[in-house]
Structure formats: structure tokens, C-alpha cells
Design a binder for these strands. Structure first.
Length: 596
RNA sequence: AUCCUGGUAGCUCAAUUGGAUAGAGCAACAGCCUUCUAAGCUGUAGGUUGGGGGUUCGAGUCCCCCCCAGGAUGCCA
């Protein structure tokens, strides 16, 4: 018998299996390297007497590239054949004849290692990039199904600070990735524009409000009021009940209170749009909790009819303890609704509208229970698509507390990034003088550093906010990527070598070139993986390594001044590197620099 | 108290999801700018993967027990 805990986890298991479907549903992975893999698999099948699917699953990529491109481990065979794995590997390596496109087969210990022919591989990958350009890495595995992504979703009563950056850029990256995977993406900014906190704000504005200051900088001013009223409420708890009273009037459509609300909302959205614009982020839909007052009545009716909820201490609750999900509160004692109630309505309405294949909520991990409750309630309401809703959670930026007033505004971070980049740029006046728009370049540099600092760690990790860490320009940072990109642009401008695919693909002898070429082949797989796992950091790690391989090659393999056959071959490789680098950086949300 | 996440080099993080000798960056030290961007490159040094058991050919990764940190746990969102 399953314990409640396991039943609670069942939803997660289902989600993972649907991901695996996504992973294996494509036989045609539009990528040439699969061809080599297939040859190896069919070659092995003749020798080891295993079904091809099993062999495919067992085949790995060696940790160190000098061992080969594919490896077949013989541990499992050792059980069947009752022989040491290293002996089996040796026999297999001997029995395998010539495999098309594979230049060497050798056994190292318990593995049979395969190396793809350099020239053939180079030709395959470089011509594919040359043909596909910005479309390299795209696939149609999404077959135009709809994915709804709910991200950024700031709370209007609270400031847009550094903590909100995560949802915004993770969501934006996933949007780009899913579009590249052939999905139709609907991006929704679901504003926190309803709830008790507006009661608090109205209260504060009635007490201390100043219309002029509000117009000047609505976000910062509302924030100041919010902090002030929270501090006051600590000494005088009756303010909370007054705020609840005001919110109740809002839900009852009291026009006087709604007037305040409308003003706060409109001014805030205007300011948000400026910030999104600067980040280069846009949404298909601006929505908000306030939009669901009518639809919510329908859902509440259904919950009542299905007898899902019960009264408790004057409030309406759904007891989810048997699923290890505590108790979900849907209506307060005073009859007003909660975040969760509105989310149920919003989810249902979205499914009616979009019939999504998946819906992603990019929201902090501190709301994990909230989403588990939400998905469970949808399931209890008989919504089969509940298992297609996914909470893409992420760790907290520590050191930001709205109520205590200890926050860093995103805008200030962007400004500081720009300032520091500008200072750095001025240390090389020769380069600096060639920039047509230094301020814009500096802004892109700052933003690249910020995006990368945030996206490069795995989503789930918390991190402490640190100016110097986020705005560091050396080492593993967004600037390392921009630098590689701009350098290749420099080669293209200055070498005098034209870009062509009529090159001799056998000219890449250096080990730096071989590594770089092999790394390029992995890009489409990484895009897919980042999508499957909702993990932008995979893309970051890949791009960092790509830039590293380039930088190593760059110092050894010149283009300018070399004999033309070599120069043209190298130009093609570096251009391809720039293309792939740029494709990935755009997914992360970076604008590309040709000079810096 | 219960549940969820994390814990890897002095610091910040990787590790192709159970595979081969655990890798990068920062900080430190030693080198490289008359040649396409030095925001770069080359090298040195840095480890009992929090601790202890277990599962197996094989564990940083899976299971159990502790320790530490963060978060969540009905009238916020």
C-alpha cells in the first residue's frame, strides 16, 4: 500500500515520464552525428547479440574526448557471458569490422571506444551550420503544440527588485528555447494585482500619500509606502484588519477604493514596461489576478457542487492532508478569496483558451506547496491536464526582504552594470574610440554579465546577492562569451578572408581545432536538454566551454597572414563558432556585440 | 515538530542523470601584448565530494541514520 507521501509524489513521477516522452519522441533528430551513432549501433548489434534499442541506451560519450566520440561499456555483458568486461571489450573490438565513418575502434579497459573520422565529421557539422545559420539547433519536435509560460509576474504592490530577475530571465530563456524546439509559446505576465496587500497600500496612501511623488517614480514610491505601512502594522496590528476591510470593499467593487487600485496598477505597469524593454523581454499577454473575479465564481460553484471544500473556523478549505499537502484555504472568514483561488480559475481559463500541451509556472521554490496544492485541486476537479502543469521552481536570492526594506532595485543594478562596463571600456582607449555607441555597448555588457550570473547556476540553488560577483567581468561570465563573439567579428572584419564553404575539411589538424569542432556538434542536443529539464544553466555551461575552446584555438590558429587554403578553412570554423555562440546567447536573452 | 531543497578545492559553481584519473572560474604564485580585441592565453598549487552505514562489476549521483544551511507548514502573495 502506498503511503500518503508516495501518493503525493506520484504527480512528480508522471511529469518526469511525460518529459521522457518528449525526449524520445523524435527519431529524426535532424542532426548528422546520429548517422555515425546508427552505424556504430548496427555494427555492434551483429557482434553482441543485443537488440539495437538496448545498445543505443548503453552507448555513451566518453568523459575525456581523447578517448573517442562514443563508448560502449561491457559491464552488463560480463554478467551474461561470465567473462571480465575488459576481455569482452577486447573481443568485440577485434570482431567489429570496418564501420562507415568511423576511423578507429579500440578497447580501453572495459570499454570499446569509437572515433568518428575527423574529416567526415568536420564536413558534416560545418556544412550544416553553414546552411542553417541562425536556425542551427532548431528542431520541430514540438510539432507546433502550445506551451504556456507564466513568468516574471511581479506583485504590483511590491518593488521589482533583483529577486524578480530570476523568474523573468529564466522564463524568457525557456520561451526562446521552446520556440526553437518547434513549440508555439504563449508568454504570460500574470501580475500580482489583487489581494490584501492593496488594502495595505490604499491605507498607506490615504494616510501619507502624495500624488506628485507617485507620478515621479511609482515603483519606488509605492515601495516606500509599503515598507512604511508594514512597519506601522508591526506596532499596530489593527492595520491588518483595516487592510482586509479595504480589500473586501475592492472585491465588492467599491469604486472609491478601485480608483486607487487602478491608478497604482496603471502607473506600475508603465514603469515595468520600461524595464522589460531595457531587458529586451516582451510578453504575449499581460494578465493579472484581478482579471479572474468573474471566472472564479464559476469555479467556486463547481467546487461547491462537487463538495470538494468544507467549512472550518468560518473559512472554506480543502483538506489535502491525505496527499501530504496540508490544508488549502480557498476563502477567508470574511469571504474574500486568496491567491490560490484565483490561480485555480486562471489555470482553468487558460486551458479553455489555449488547450496547452504544457503550462510552466516559473516561480520561486518557496511557493512549491502552493503549486502542489493547485495542481492537486485541479486534478480533483477532474482536469486531466493537471499533470501537464509544471512548477519550474528556482532558489532564492538571499538578502532581499521586501517588508524590511532591504532590497536592490533591478534598475539600479542595470545602471551600475552599465557604469562599471563603461569604466572598464575606457581602459583601452583605442578600442573605445571605435565604438559607435559606447553607452549602449556598456549597457549590453552589464546586462550580459547580470543575465549570465543569474542563469549559469542550476535553477534550484540559492545565492547571496553580491554586486562584485554579479558584475564581475573576468573569467566565467557573460562577458567571456561576448568577448569571444566580438573577437571573431574582429577576425571577420580585419583578416581580409572571405567566408566560403568551399574549403578543405581535412586541414584541421590541431587538437584545439578538433576539440572545438566536436564541441560544436553538441549544441542541438543541449538546446533540447535545456528545454526538457527547464534548465538554462545547461546552455550557459555549454556556451562557456564553447568560448573556451575558441579562445584556446584563437591564440594558436591565425587567419590573417596564413596561406589561403588554411585561412579559408579557419575562417569557416570560427564563423561557425560565432554563429552557434550567438544563437545560444540570444536564447539566454543577450544582445550580441560585434565590438566591445 | 513535520515536509521540501541544498551541502563537492580557501570562495562561487560543474560533473552528459549510476560509469573510466571528480572538472572550471575567482583569489594566490610564475610567464605571454612590434602579428586578426590581454574582458584573453599558458603554467603551478589547491579534494577523505558534511559524517557513518548499505545496494553492485562501479556511488558525488540511488537507499537508511545522523550533522549543518535555506525554505514551507489555514485567514500574505
Amino acid at each position: 500500500m502506498r503511503t500518503p507521501k508516495e501518493r503525493g509524489n506520484l504527480g512528480v513521477v508522471e511529469l518526469i515520464s511525460s518529459d521522457e516522452q518528449l525526449a524520445t519522441s523524435n527519431d529524426l533528430w535532424g542532426f548528422q552525428v546520429t548517422k555515425f551513432k546508427k552505424n556504430i549501433i548496427s555494427g555492434l548489434a551483429k557482434v553482441v547479440n543485443l537488440p539495437e534499442e538496448n545498445i543505443e541506451r548503453m552507448l555513451e560519450i566518453p568523459t575525456e574526448s581523447n578517448r573517442g566520440d562514443f563508448a560502449f561499456p561491457c559491464f552488463q555483458l560480463s554478467k551474461i557471458r561470465h567473462q571480465p568486461p575488459s576481455e569482452i571489450a577486447m573481443t568485440i573490438a577485434k570482431e567489429l569490422g570496418k564501420i562507415e565513418g568511423i576511423s578507429s575502434v579500440e578497447n580501453i579497459g572495459p570499454y570499446v571506444n569509437f572515433r568518428v573520422d575527423n574529416t567526415i565529421l568536420t564536413k558534416e557539422i560545418l556544412s550544416e551550420i553553414y546552411q542553417k545559420k541562425e536556425k542551427f539547433g532548431e528542431t520541430d519536435i514540438g510539432s507546433n503544440q502550445t506551451i504556456v509560460i507564466d513568468y516574471s509576474s511581479p506583485n504590483i504592490a511590491k518593488p521589482f527588485h533583483v529577486g524578480h530577475l530570476r523568474s523573468t530571465i529564466i522564463g524568457n530563456c525557456l520561451k526562446n528555447v521552446y520556440q526553437a524546439l518547434g513549440y508555439k509559446v504563449i508568454s504570460i505576465n500574470y501580475l500580482g494585482d489583487w489581494g490584501k496587500q492593496f488594502g495595505l497600500l490604499v491605507l498607506a496612501f490615504q494616510k501619507w500619500g502624495d500624488k506628485e511623488k507617485l507620478k515621479e517614480d511609482p515603483l519606488k514610491y509605492l515601495y516606500k509606502l509599503y515598507v512604511k505601512v508594514n512597519q506601522a502594522a508591526e506596532e499596530d496590528p489593527s492595520l491588518h484588519s483595516k487592510a482586509r476591510e479595504l480589500f473586501k470593499r475592492m472585491e465588492n467593487k467599491d469604486s472609491e477604493i478601485l480608483e486607487y487600485w487602478r491608478k497604482f496598477r496603471a502607473l506600475s505597469i508603465k514603469k515595468y514596461e520600461e524595464i522589460y524593454n531595457r531587458l529586451g523581454i516582451s510578453f504575449d499577454v499581460y494578465s493579472g489576478e484581478s482579471q479572474y473575479n468573474e471566472y472564479m465564481k464559476k469555479i467556486i460553484g463547481e467546487i461547491k457542487d462537487k463538495k470538494l471544500w468544507q467549512s472550518s473556523q468560518g473559512a472554506k478549505i480543502i483538506d489535502l492532508q491525505e496527499y501530504n499537502l496540508n490544508i488549502a484555504l480557498l476563502k477567508k472568514e470574511d469571504g474574500t478569496t486568496l491567491y490560490l483561488t484565483r490561480d485555480i480559475a486562471a489555470a482553468d481559463e487558460r486551458y479553455q483558451k489555449y488547450h496547452f500541451h504544457k503550462m510552466l509556472y516559473v516561480v520561486g521554490t518557496d511557493q512549491k506547496l502552493h503549486f502542489e496544492q493547485l495542481f492537486k485541486i485541479l486534478e480533483l476537479l477532474g482536469r486531466k491536464w493537471a499533470s501537464h502543469c509544471i512548477h519550474v521552481d528556482f532558489g532564492r536570492v538571499q538578502g532581499m526582504s521586501t517588508r524590511k526594506g532591504k532590497v536592490i532595485f533591478l534598475e539600479d543594478l542595470l545602471d551600475e552594470g552599465q557604469k562599471r562596463a563603461l569604466e572598464k571600456m575606457k581602459t583601452n582607449l583605442e578600442k573605445f574610440s571605435q565604438l559607435s555607441n559606447a553607452k549602449l555597448t556598456a549597457d549590453i555588457c552589464g546586462l550580459s554579465a547580470i543575465i549570465f550570473a543569474d542563469l549559469s547556476n542550476k535553477r534550484i540553488k540559492n545565492y547571496e546577492f553580491d554586486w562584485n560577483k554579479i558584475l564581475n567581468f573576468e573569467g566565467d561570465t557573460g562577458l567571456y562569451l561576448q568577448n569571444a563573439h566580438a573577437r571573431i567579428a574582429g577576425i571577420m572584419r580585419k583578416s581580409g578572408i572571405e567566408l566560403t564553404d568551399r574549403i578543405d575539411y581535412s586541414l584541421f589538424k590541431e587538437k584545439e581545432a578538433v576539440s572545438l569542432i566536436r564541441w560544436l556538434t553538441g549544441y542541438p542536443e543541449i538546446v533540447k536538454l535545456a528545454g526538457e529539464k527547464y534548465e538554462p544553466s545547461f546552455l550557459c555551461t555549454y556556451l562557456l566551454e564553447l568560448a573556451r575552446y575558441f579562445h584556446k584555438a584563437y591564440h594558436l590558429m591565425r587567419v590573417k597572414g596564413e596561406v589561403s587554403t588554411i585561412a579559408r578553412a579557419r575562417m569557416n570554423l570560427f564563423w561557425a563558432t560565432k554563429q552557434v555562440l550567438g544563437n545560444g546567447m540570444k536564447f539566454l536573452g543577450m544582445k550580441l556585440l560585434e565590438r566591445m
